[in-house]
Design a protein around this nucleic acid. Sequence first.
DNA 1: CATTGACCCTCACGTTGCGTTATATCCTAT
DNA 2: ATAGGATATAACGCAACGTGAGGGTCAATG
Lengths: 241, 241
Amino acid sequence: MKVKEVADLVGISVRTLHHYDEIGLLRPETTEAGYRMYSERDLETLQQILFFKELGFSLKEIQKILEDPAFDRKEALELQRKMLVEKRSHVDHMITTIDKTIKQMLGEIEMTNKEKFEGMNFDHNPYEEEARRRWGDEKVDESNNKIKGMSKEDKKKLSEEWDGIYTRLAKLRHGSPDSAEAQEAIHEWYEFLNHFGQYSYEAFRGLGQMYVDDERFTKNIDNYGEGLAIFMRDAMAVYAD
Amino acid sequence: MKVKEVADLVGISVRTLHHYDEIGLLRPETTEAGYRMYSERDLETLQQILFFKELGFSLKEIQKILEDPAFDRKEALELQRKMLVEKRSHVDHMITTIDKTIKQMLGEIEMTNKEKFEGMNFDHNPYEEEARRRWGDEKVDESNNKIKGMSKEDKKKLSEEWDGIYTRLAKLRHGSPDSAEAQEAIHEWYEFLNHFGQYSYEAFRGLGQMYVDDERFTKNIDNYGEGLAIFMRDAMAVYAD
DNA sequence: CATTGACCCTCACGTTGCGTTATATCCTAT
DNA sequence: ATAGGATATAACGCAACGTGAGGGTCAATG
């Protein structure tokens, strides 16, 4: 398929396809005349690109993800689905804010200024974090905008807090994931994470699962104590219920 | 409230607030020292701005809307709500596409290339059209990207088609809105509109209501025949059922 | 009163992701 | 051969800020 056909099929511009080729994001084969010829495989890649793009990833980030050796299309689709579900609930949240605002205008309710802007800030989708961890930067503190702006001292404090929570959980790992102590520590972990993103309980549960599914995380977490990743997954699941 | 307080409350940057001031979109009072002081009214305006922005309007467009003498905050909130509901169903559509894609990968279903990109193209929200009509340009052909690229001849053809449908409906207006003839003509109107936007039946119904609610549209439509706006609203509602 | 740290200002260059226009070549039907 | 549609590259421009520089203001504290 040539550019116009793809552009019309997909609903993007020829210029966009050129641009993606130029930056190496989606490089089709070319004919002898220099025409771009897109394959079925290219269309699949394009679908991935457009899903990630819709979810707010920059083209650079998308490229990084697609080039990661660990990238798996089915996994990506499943993650993208989760992100879209989250996005949908975010839209719901905005609708709720509008409903409340209208009621406030009619004098039916009171509303704080803070409430008027709820749902407005979607700069951190928890599954975006997951995508970055899975296929991008492993170090959360390097990929998080809020952390980037922090002073060294604040970063140190943050690191210690993180460390403290993990250490505490490591001590509790031989016990039951639904014990009061464990749940208290997990609560703190949830609060900690919510400084940087808006985690729904579902997303929190999913993150715990990822600690176990993804070897890189299991390995890092289990540095605090053998089996901690599994323990955290279970405790997080209890917490999310 | 000064800039940082507003920025923190709302979740945007100080730079953004500066920018909005510079372009005249949101101009707060200033102190003698030159500091920006935001009022409650400014926060309400900011909420509007951010809702429209979330819905894909450019800052220029938003400015135009907010400056329109006919702008009404409650109306805006209600319209924004409708747009968010539409956006949500668009997200749903994308989720459906992902589900299908996964099934196709597993060999459970077949899928055309076209189907793989369904939901991907959200470049024309029907309620966006409504906002533009209500507070922006009244002439649809001047605000619609697809029409902009057309030749004079094509525009003329379009205008005649539009005219023809309206004239036909005017002849039918003394009859019943649910008659076969009326419904056939409304179907053509629906198809006509769908050349330029993706109208759900709900959006189509809402548009008909707007013909009656908004005096400017009633007036224009009733030039074709007294009472046509009401007739069209009713016929469009029947069609949407 | 002086100092300090947080916050404020303006200015201006840079970034991202294309849209748009110009110019030239390729392809296919007539 | 011609014409019209499609393709290519090149390159300027734009929207909406992000970022850094340099300087002023404010309020608490010593």
